[in-house]
Design a binder for these strands. Structure first.
Length: 771
DNA sequence: CAGTGAGCGAGCTTCCGCTTGACTT
């Protein structure tokens, strides 16, 4: 039996290590953190120097049990990752295994190679308590921020909301970007392009400056029709393009989004699979470092396949702000394998990683750039023609994105050119781009906020909470003016162009606006973009032994907690950004726009009368916001008609009143308790006969849905095909059976055989770990 | 699918970072 137990964080790593270490060593995984603060309470005693209460995480009970059994009578080596979190994991493991942290062997390696592992085993150290303390400070700080801020939001805005050091800043970035876009005033100008002729060749050029308006553009073209054009000067500049560093989590997410269209979640799930099968190194990393082994393998491969001049050994410095560099860059485990993965998704991501890794060890591409300036007689501007020729492809051979060559015809300075045609096309200056998932990750990384393991989950959280939506943007159609000069004839026309259409962009909801404004006002320090960076500096001091973790938290809390108390006193109406729009001329009651429990809402009358006990004061009336209107800008004139709903349209065929209104899911009419959505029709103007038609259509559709009806048991046609139902349980009807011919007893049999309804199971998974 | 927004005041929600499953919303 093995005498030693090595504990790492990931099971895949355990498997690899087993291969390196031989039969004296058993290797097991902790599956990440095993202990944490309790989920349902603060778990930090603020009055006792922030003493934390740790407990084995509910989902790790089994893991801990197994580790305890495995450790019996063995020599334990703690081999968790060599970063702050890894050190803490080692400490927690030592604690649950009742090992002395001062004596237990702690080993680390930055790459998983046999030599690195052997080297590590030869030089064990003990747990670095300073680093553990830095982790504790980080953990407790995040707990304090998250668990003190969120309840303020529950009280002031809406239950179930959340705030935190990372997520609230992510939301703020998106909110502020959206505001910049809204405030942006596009400016129109004209881009002049021309085609010249020289001998048999043609030369495309652009005017070096844009022209601000249509009249001047027209004047310019009129002048150009008669002007002389001469080559003023030709400049040749050699240029280089260098390969990018090997992938980190964040750059992999960006490139996979850009080139393959994957979401950050997709990228991580696929990468995880590749990792588990040993095709790539660990996918959650902030390091661009390649192991010596990998560099050599790449060099060998490149030299053999492309020749020595394509090889260039490079090691990249990790640029990321708070990089911990516990792992290597993301790379193939075997450079020689050009294809890996079980499906096309995995294959495509593997290929991207392979190309990026190999390219990173290749020579730069050489480019020859040519710039030709062309004088215009009688004008100061010049035309500019640029050519670009790839002289040596270098790394572009494997990691494309190379542009096509633009070859210029042979030219000489002083050369006369003939203008063939010219064109002035209106362009608009563009607002800053919205964030997508990957560009948000990039920004967060730049700010040093969040870690490779949290980028994808953070984006999930801010969407789950209803702060952010991922949307395809339709853009708007613009008429662009264009003037064309051909020969000596000038014509004007317009071009219809869609501007601002975009896929999968992150857009804030009104809730995000409300919450961000509130948090920025009351907790500006936490919402500041450099809050994390400052905290990280202090964490570094703790890790260096220059600062006690309790001292850091004390200083922080001294400033933070009073803000929480102030926030508690904030006015709900203020948090909901209540706006008084004016008075309803009919009733004289005030009209408000505010953020309600279900989103923006209009309100007629006081919700909170001064004398609450006076039962004679009528309740306020509520109405949804008019289509397209926003909380900050909606006017009284837009608001008033909304209170005309609900409206009695007329009577149904059986003489019951038909009511029209707008609900959470859009406009509808209802008769008694039955609802009918009216997507195309306007509830303000819908007529009795239109409403009757809608009702009749839906009733007919519903009748078609029922294939058979035996009272309680029915056969229905659903969106996924025919099924049997008894009201609570559903059963699919197999394809080979004709639902029309099924009799009642056969239907009952199908129901009995169908698996029990799983409804609700999924939802419980997240919250109810206790029961 | 579902069409709300005060209410009696129960019992509940929430953070970030480290890991991988189970599972169909």
């Amino acid at each position: 039996m093995a005498k030693n137990l090595v504990i790492v964080e990931s099971p895949a790593k355990a498997k690899t290590l087993t291969g390196f270490l031989g039969s004296d060593y058993q290797v097991k995984s902790s599956y990440g953190h095993i202990r944490d603060l309790p989920e349902r309470k603060l778990g930090v005693d603020v009055k006792k120097h922030f003493e934390p209460t740790y407990q084995v995480s509910p989902d790790k009970e089994q893991v801990v049990k197994e580790l305890k059994t495995a450790a019996k009578g063995k020599h334990v080596w703690l081999a968790s990752d060599s970063d702050r979190e890894g050190e803490a994991i080692a400490w927690h493991v030592a604690h649950v295994l009742e090992l002395d942290p001062k004596k237990t062997k702690r080993i680390v390696f930055h790459e998983i190679t046999k030599s690195a592992v052997t080297e590590a085993i030869a030089h064990p150290r003990t747990i670095d308590m300073k680093l553990v303390d830095a982790q504790q400070a980080r953990r407790i700080l995040d707990r304090l921020v998250g668990y003190e801020l969120s309840p303020v939001l529950w009280k002031k805005v809406r239950r179930g909301l959340s705030a935190g050091r990372v997520q609230s800043v992510a939301v703020r970035l998106i909110v502020e970007r959206e505001r910049e876009i809204k405030e942006f005033k596009p400016e129109s100008s004209f881009k002049i392009s021309a085609i010249f002729e020289t001998g048999k060749h043609q030369l495309a050029a652009e005017l070096s400056e844009k022209i601000t308006n249509l009249a001047s553009s027209r004047k310019f073209l009129e002048h150009a029709a008669k002007a002389d054009f001469t080559v003023a000067n030709i400049e040749q500049k050699p240029g280089k393009r260098s390969p990018g560093a090997p992938f980190t989590t964040s750059t992999l997410q960006q490139e996979a989004a850009r080139r393959l269209g994957y979401s950050v979640r997709q990228t991580m799930t696929i990468a995880q699979k590749l990792y588990e099968h040993g095709h790539i190194t660990y996918m959650r990393t902030d390091s661009t470092i390649l192991s010596g082994l990998a560099i050599n393998a790449a060099k060998e491969y490149i030299t053999k396949e492309y020749g020595a001049k394509y090889s260039q050994v490079r090691q990249y410095q990790t640029k990321s702000r708070n990089a911990q560099e516990a792992h290597e860059a993301i790379r193939p485990t075997q450079i020689g394998r050009l294809e890996s993965g079980a499906d096309s998704g995995q294959k495509r991501l593997y290929e991207l990683i392979w190309r990026r890794t190999v390219a990173s060890q290749m020579a730069a591409a050489d480019i020859e750039k040519t710039e030709v300036k062309i004088d215009i007689s009688g004008r100061n501007e010049q035309f500019l023609a640029t050519g670009e020729v790839l002289v040596f492809d270098g790394f572009l051979k494997v990691y494309g994105g190379g542009k096509d060559d633009m070859i210029l015809p042979p030219l000489e300075s002083g050369h006369r050119l003939r203008l063939k045609s010219a064109d002035a096309l209106e362009t608009y200056s563009r607002p800053p781009a919205r964030y997508g998932e990957a560009s948000l990750v990039k920004k967060l990384e730049e700010l040093g906020i969040g870690r490779p393991s949290t980028y994808a989950p953070t984006i999930g959280t801010i969407q789950d909470r209803g702060y952010i939506e991922k949307k395809d943007l339709e853009g708007e159609v613009r008429q662009l003016k264009e003037i064309i000069l051909s020969g000596s004839k000038i014509t004007e026309q317009t071009q219809e162009v869609t501007i601002g259409a975009d896929r999968a962009k992150l857009v804030p909801t009104p809730l995000a606006d409300i919450v961000t404004d509130f948090l920025v006002k009351y907790f500006g320090e936490i919402l500041n973009y450099d809050f994390t960076a400052k905290a990280e500096n202090e964490l570094d001091d703790i890790a260096d032994g220059k600062l006690a973790w309790q001292k850091m938290l004390e200083d922080f809390y001294k400033g933070f907690h009073p803000l929480v108390e102030k926030g508690e006193e904030a006015d709900r109406a203020e948090a909901a950004q209540t706006r008084h729009l004016g008075k309803d001329p009919k009733t004289g009651k005030p009209v408000y726009a505010r953020y309600g429990r279900y989103g923006p809402v209009l309100q007629l009358g006081e919700a909170d009368p001064a004398d609450k006990d006076d039962k004679d004061i009528p309740k306020p009336k509520f109405a949804p916001m008019p289509e397209g209107a926003e909380l900050e800008t909606v006017t009284l004139e837009q608001a008033l008609p909304m209170f005309a709903l609900p409206r009695e349209v007329g009577q149904s065929t059986d003489e019951q009143p038909i009511i029209a209104d707008i609900g959470r899911f859009g406009p509808y009419v209802k008769v008694g308790k039955e609802f009918f959505s009216i997507k195309e029709l306007d509830p303000f103007t819908i007529t009795e006969s239109e409403a009757r038609q809608v009702i009749k259509d839906k009733q007919e559709a519903a009748a078609k849905r029922v294939v058979a009806d035996w009272g309680k048991i029915q056969i229905l046609r659903g969106p996924y095909g025919p099924y049997v139902t008894d009201g609570t349980k559903n059963a699919r009807i197999p394809k080979e059976q004709d639902p029309e011919k099924l009799n009642e007893s056969a239907a009952k049999e199908l129901l009995a055989k169908a698996p029990a309804s799983k409804r609700g199971n999924f939802r419980r998974r997240r919250g109810a770990k206790k029961s």
